[in-house]
Nucleic acid binder design. Structure first.
Ligand SMILES: [Mn+2]
Ligand SMILES: [Mn+2]
Length: 623
DNA sequence: GGCCTCA
DNA sequence: TGAGGCCAACGCGCA
DNA sequence: TGCGCG
């Protein structure tokens, strides 16, 4: 390996890292640099052939032979890089702060020559003896037998320099060095804030959304205590942490003493000790100087707790976590569905778990599946529940999903590529997609076999701050008009705020026809409710009106399936209705994941005859 | 949620 | 190993 | 010529 890669990654007019430089012959040197970049790691470098063979060691080297430290081999660095310390400016490769942790000379074990070292490098096994200030004695670097070619392990041999105690390299780093790294990361963002009064606060962390810091009386401290918010962003879990904000040495600090929620599990009922054990784990993992775990309950003056192992608590807390992360497997013939994180709360307020969602879909699968048959699906995935952001997915990678999953390749003109849409024709697939975080099920209105031929025309009633009784009145008007045209239509709640009217049609139209038909029906409805409905697309022009959305009738558009749960408060369901249920008292909130089973039992499947009906729109228009 | 990439 | 990124996109009315 | 929309 030459230095080509090294030079290619850097712009030497912008970084002070060395361009080159050759090693001298006599002895070989090594250096370990602490590199506080996007993620803190240590770079382990050995001089060979006049350059520095380099490994990035995420957790840094250890003097404890029990530790196997992952070391990812990276490009060779010039010899002079071993002397480099300082800042790599933002925007450059490896931006952050570099400091030399240790340096010295090294030799190959068994009086090997440099050639032996090169052979060892090639063969994936290096045995060396370091002679540094901190790192002394024998080490082995062994290439892992994984598919990842660059993964090595750095292991201390047992010798007089080895330690048996837990070895944490960061304990050997001076405060000043650590601070420099943190300051660099912080610098770009925001200027220092003046000192403020200490205050109690709750911190809300999350996997994807911003950390929130709210005072006891509801004031948002997030901008006032930005460094704390940024520090807490390192907590890669949903958590509600109780603590106290103070200013010390002109630095804001957050002393934390209780954990109220973790991974969307409300744990306030849990033992205080267990909660504290979980909090301790969380804060230890975060390992941030501004966030300090406090053993005590609200104390006036907390003394900093040295991180110490409390074995009993450790085990306890792990057990607790294990209880919260249950997995299960379902088998349908040869199809095996892995269901994960079943106790995760998808509705944190209502405390409804992913497992309950999956159970609901199992219960209604025989009713929902006929409506999904052969329809391409757009996935709206909420892997962290309804309170966290979701993302959409259409294209599935056949390589990365079980082979029994059915997909339909459909060509997209706009992106000029083929998209493998999910098709859900059985319960196994339904549970598989729900497990991926699909709270709602969104099928097309046409089959993948004839994507341009809609099987339904849909009138979507979208109320914007309109009394639901008016929505009911509008739906009844639509029903009356459709009756006059001899059209058989079906109705359901959207599961959100509105109603969906579905008109199954003969498979002989294109979307322009169904769209224009619904547009026409919409216009007639509008004539009868000119003050409460609107056909305008611009939301500004339909304030406090019911939007008669006919534009849903287009290729690629989706609408929530009947019996689909919606990612909304209360775990509401899009519920098929009988037309005579359209009367005062009806609400969309009344149908939830909890009562649909009972309703199906009492009323049966109100949409079961949907596929027997094939309306003729042309005939209807002539009536 | 799961997979890939990068250090 | 561990963190971060990625995972959609129709076409039409309007400024 | 681009943005917003569901
Ligand atoms: Mn580095
Ligand atoms: Mn709607």
């Amino acid at each position: 390996m030459s230095l080509e890669k090294y030079k290619q990654k850097r712009d030497f007019s912008k970084t002070e890292e060395p361009v080159g430089g050759k090693g001298k012959r006599k002895t070989l040197s090594f250096v370990v640099q602490r590199h506080h970049a996007t993620s803190l790691h240590y770079d382990f470098r050995l001089e060979m052939e006049g350059v520095l063979k380099s490994w990035a060691v995420p957790k840094g080297p250890s003097l404890n032979p029990a530790d196997k430290r992952l070391a990812m081999m990276v490009e060779d660095h010039p010899f002079d890089y071993g002397k480099f310390e300082g800042e790599i400016p933002a925007g450059n490769y490896g931006a952050g702060v570099v400091s030399i942790f240790d340096a010295g000379t090294y030799t190959a074990l068994d009086k090997g020559t440099e050639n032996d070292l090169l052979k060892g490098l090639h063969d994936g096994s290096l045995k060396i003896k370091l002679n540094g200030k901190i790192l002394k004695g024998e080490f082995a670097l062994v290439r892992m037998k994984t598919s990842e070619q660059n993964a090595w392990l750095l292991i201390k041999h047992k010798d007089e320099y080895a330690v048996t105690k837990k070895f944490n390299i960061e304990d050997l780093v001076s405060k000043e060095v650590k601070k420099k790294g943190l300051d660099f990361k912080r610098k770009k963002k925001e200027p220092r804030k003046p000192e403020v009064e200490p205050d109690d606060a709750l911190a809300y962390t999350s996997v994807k959304t911003k950390v929130k810091l709210i005072s006891r009386n509801g004031i948002d401290f997030s901008s006032r205590y930005k460094p704390i918010v940024e520090a807490l962003a390192g907590i890669k879990a949903e958590a509600v942490i109780d603590g106290e904000l103070v200013i010390e040495d002109a630095l804001p600090k957050f002393y934390v003493f209780d954990l109220l929620s973790l991974n969307n599990h409300d744990i306030r009922d849990m033992d205080l000790l267990k909660r504290k054990a979980l909090l301790f784990e969380l804060i230890k993992k975060l390992d941030h100087p501004l966030i300090i775990y406090s053993k005590h309950e609200r104390a006036d003056k907390e003394e900093e707790d040295v991180v110490q192992e409390q074995e009993g608590e450790e085990i306890e807390s792990r057990k607790e976590t294990a209880v919260m992360e249950t997995d299960r497997e379902e088998q349908y013939g040869k199809k095996i569905v892995k269901l994960t994180n079943l106790n995760k709360l998808y509705w944190p307020v209502e405390k409804i778990s992913k497992g309950q969602l999956i159970d609901y879909y199992k219960g209604v699968s025989e009713y929902i599946l006929p409506h999904l048959k052969d329809k391409p699906l757009s996935l709206n995935r909420h892997p962290n529940g309804i309170a966290e952001p979701s993302f959409f997915q259409k294209d599935l990678d056949r390589e990365k999903i079980p082979s029994w999953i059915k997909t339909a390749p459909l060509y997209s003109d706009s992106t000029e590529k083929t998209i493998d849409y999910l098709v859900c024709n059985d319960e196994a697939t339904l549970l598989w997609m729900v497990n991926l975080g699909c709270i709602e099920i969104n099928p097309w209105l046409s089959s993948y076999k004839k994507p341009e031929v809609p099987l339904f025309a849909v009138l979507d009633l979208d109320p914007h701050d309109v009394d639901f009784n008016e929505v009911i009145a509008v739906a009844k008007t639509a029903k009356m008009l459709l009756d006059q045209m001899n059209i058989t239509a079906f109705i359901k709640t959207s599961g959100s705020k509105g109603l969906h009217i579905f008109i199954p049609v003969s498979p002989i139209y294109d979307y322009d026809i169904t769209k224009e038909f619904i547009h026409y029906v919409g216009q007639m409805v509008f004539e009868r409710h000119p003050n409460t409905t609107s056909l305008e697309r611009s939301p500004a022009k339909r304030k406090e009106r019911i939007y008669l959305d006919f534009l849903q009738n287009r290729v690629g558009q989706t609408i929530a399936a009947p019996y689909s749960v919606r990612p909304k408060p209360g775990a509401t369901v899009s519920a098929p209705l009988a037309w005579d249920e359209l009367k005062a008292g009806l609400t969309t909130k009344g149908f939830t994941l909890f009562n649909m089973g009972q309703r199906l039992h009492e009323r049966g499947d109100l949409w079961k005859d949907m596929h027997l009906v094939k309306n003729n729109l042309k005939k209807a228009l002539t009536l």
